[in-house]
Amino acid sequence: MSTPGLNNQRNRILFPTLPRGEVVATFESYPEAQQAVDVLARADFPVDKVSIVGSDLKSVERVTGKLTWGRVALAGAASGAWLGIFFGLLLIIFSPSVSLAFVLAALLLGAGFGMLWGIVSYAINRRRRDFTSIQQVIATSYSVLVDSDLGNRARNLLASGGAEEPAPAPGWTPPAQPQHPSDPPPAPPASAPPAAAPPAAAPPAEGERPPAPPA
């Protein structure tokens, strides 16, 4: 009887699928994408929801130099010497009675055998491959993907360098944005209507005394 959890994990390993989500940033090199993920990790972002996807994979072979007889012999001797030291140390571990002279002899035999093997291989393949190289598989661009519900937070963290924007205090209003030159000028504020002047007092009639001013 099989366990469902183990079967799901095995299927996930055997049949990998492309991650799904929202692209928050795209870079030209992998170190830049890795640095962006480090920024999210330092900001306590759930990095288990983050993926780096490389697009347009290309195989690049960088030529490091030209093969020569001396170079081939030296490389073969070095690899053979390491093999001889390995077998000599194994014999010392399992047979304490073996002296260090045996290890030195194994080293020399391994270096000689490796040098001979390298020279013979170079003599056979000289016309077909006369240079050394390093092969790499690189991508043209690298995209950082996160879950769709975390896309805005990831963009804000990358834009601010990993610093969370503080929430506005209650009752606080953001300052007015500067006006762009192409925007129309704001409308002038409506002016209050002028206050009505008090009615003029009628002149006193003939023979009447004018009213006394208020105290």
Rank of each mutant, 00 (worst) to 15 (best):
L108S: 02
G76N: 03
G112F: 05
V137G: 04
V137F: 08
P214E: 06
T173G: 07
A36L: 05
A196E: 14
P16N: 11
S51P: 02
R129T: 13
R128P: 01
P178R: 11
P16L: 10
L6H: 13
P184K: 04
P181Q: 06
F27W: 08
W69E: 07
Y122H: 06
A36Q: 00
L116G: 08
T140W: 03
G80K: 00
M1K: 12
Q35I: 05
P198Q: 06
T140S: 15
W117C: 03
M1S: 11
P174G: 14
A197G: 11
W69T: 07
T26I: 10
A197W: 07
G161F: 03
S160A: 12
P211D: 10
A197R: 14
W172L: 03
G162F: 00
G65Q: 08
A187V: 14
P214L: 12
R62G: 02
E22Y: 07
P31Q: 01
A196L: 14
S95M: 10
L57S: 06
V50S: 02
Q9I: 06
P170H: 13
G112D: 04
E32D: 15
A73F: 04
S29N: 13
A190P: 02
A106W: 03
A25M: 05
E165L: 15
R12C: 09
A197Y: 10
E22L: 03
Q9C: 07
A139Y: 00
P189H: 07
Y142K: 03
S2L: 15
G21F: 01
S143V: 02
E165I: 15
G114I: 00
V63H: 07
V47K: 05
T3C: 14
A169T: 10
I124W: 10
P178T: 05
A196H: 13
E164T: 12
G151E: 04
D56K: 11
S95Q: 03
V146I: 08
E165F: 12
P188N: 08
P211C: 06
Q136G: 07
A41R: 12
T132Y: 01
L83R: 09
R128F: 09
L91K: 03
V24D: 01
V120I: 15
K49A: 05
N156Y: 01
E165D: 15
T64H: 09
A36E: 01
G80S: 06
Q135E: 14
A167E: 14
L89T: 07
A123S: 13
S51L: 00
S121T: 13
L107N: 00
A215E: 15
T26L: 02
S55A: 08
A197H: 12
R71S: 11
W172P: 00
P189W: 12
P204Q: 09
Q34R: 12
V98L: 13
P181L: 10
T132A: 11
A159T: 13
G162P: 01
L116M: 15
A36D: 02
A215S: 14
G171Q: 05
